[in-house]
């Protein structure tokens, strides 16, 4: 029996999306191979990227071992963002937690001013996540887009419920959008189809929602794997966007991550590595040590 190594050549190409401006810019996506399948025909010009998350308020429920790397700057988002640079991040992700009506209901203009200040203080692109409250986010994310006009931030979550208003603000002010839908391939495609009618698809990044290990991780894993395959293998235009896996917060709110530092690093690390192997193009992590571990694991030769 003759053996021929199965080498695949696919026709779909994930759109290459640029976030940030000038020398602060970063490209994600652009691949026509499955994750780390460098043995197939094709390439990934922009290997997986890593961001660390920062909050716009002092975190209340983080375990000490997650606060530790940032303990001197944890109350000051601008210094916190700058400190991320020391951990070789490709981007910083700012979470506007305090704007959540259920948290502090902080006003939109304050959040937007902070986003601008953080974006200017760092030399990597900024990702901005609103609280996820679909009504408040219209106000907050539109303001962020306006105040940071032209900086090409990656802004989300753009949801089925608010894509028209938020999408328009993101587009008008020259940013890139995170289209988020709850762990379902049909909802995900439907949102991309709707959003693409008013928004250029090459400025959309997909957030399929990332669940933590033990708390639904397998759903995110299989969904991301499917989205990537439908894009790359069957060339479905509405899934050929890069994927963001925002998993740090989900992992560190688990009891298992909180009760032991090394267990926490592995909780976040295994979730991250799984979603990376499934096809995520950019990962948002919380702990800088996880970032280092993952990078060294995939770069080992």
């Amino acid at each position: 029996m003759d053996y021929k190594a199965p080498v695949e050549a696919y026709t779909g190409v994930v759109r290459e999306v640029t976030i940030g401006k000038g020398n602060k810019s970063l490209k994600i996506g652009g691949e026509n191979i499955l994750p780390l399948h460098f043995f197939d025909q094709g390439s990934n010009p922009n290997p997986v990227k890593f961001a660390l998350e920062i909050l716009d308020m002092k975190p209340e429920d983080w375990p000490e071992h997650a606060v530790e790397p940032f303990k001197d700057v944890i109350s000051d988002p601008v210094s916190w963002a700058k400190k991320c640079r020391g951990f070789a991040v490709d981007a910083v992700s700012l979470f506007l937690m305090s704007t959540d009506p259920a948290v502090k209901n902080a006003p939109a203009d304050k959040a937007a001013a902070l986003a601008r200040e953080v974006a200017e203080a760092i030399d990597v692109p900024l990702i901005v996540y609103g609280s996820g409250d679909e009504k408040k986010d219209v106000e907050v994310l539109s303001k962020v887009a306006e105040v940071c006009d032209g900086m090409n931030l990656l802004i989300g979550p753009v949801l089925k419920e608010n894509y028209e208003a938020v999408g328009k603000a993101i587009l008008d002010h020259g940013h890139t959008a995170i289209a988020q839908s709850p762990l379902d391939i049909n909802l995900l495609k439907e949102l991309n189809v709707k959003l693409s009618k008013i928004f250029p698809p090459d400025r959309i990044v997909i957030d399929p929602l990332s669940s933590a290990l033990g708390y639904g991780m397998e759903y995110s894993f299989s969904l991301i794997e499917r989205v990537k395959q439908i894009g790359v293998i069957t060339k479905d235009s509405m899934t050929m966007m890069p994927i963001i896996a925002n998993l740090g917060g989900e992992c560190w709110k688990t009891k298992q991550a909180k009760e032991n530092k090394k267990q926490g690093l592995l909780w976040e690390g295994m979730t991250a590595l799984s979603l990376l192997l499934a096809g995520a193009n950019i990962l948002v992590l919380r702990h800088p040590e996880t970032l280092k571990l993952i990078k060294e694991t995939i770069e080992a030769r």
């Binding site: 090394k262 690093l265 592995l266 690390g269 295994m270 590595l273 499934a278 571990l293």
Partner: peptide, 13 residues
């Protein structure tokens, strides 16, 4: 820790 991470990748793969 890296050994465990590599192991977890083998579970996926």
């Amino acid at each position: 820790l890296k050994e465990m991470l590599v192991g977890s990748a083998f579970i996926n793969k």
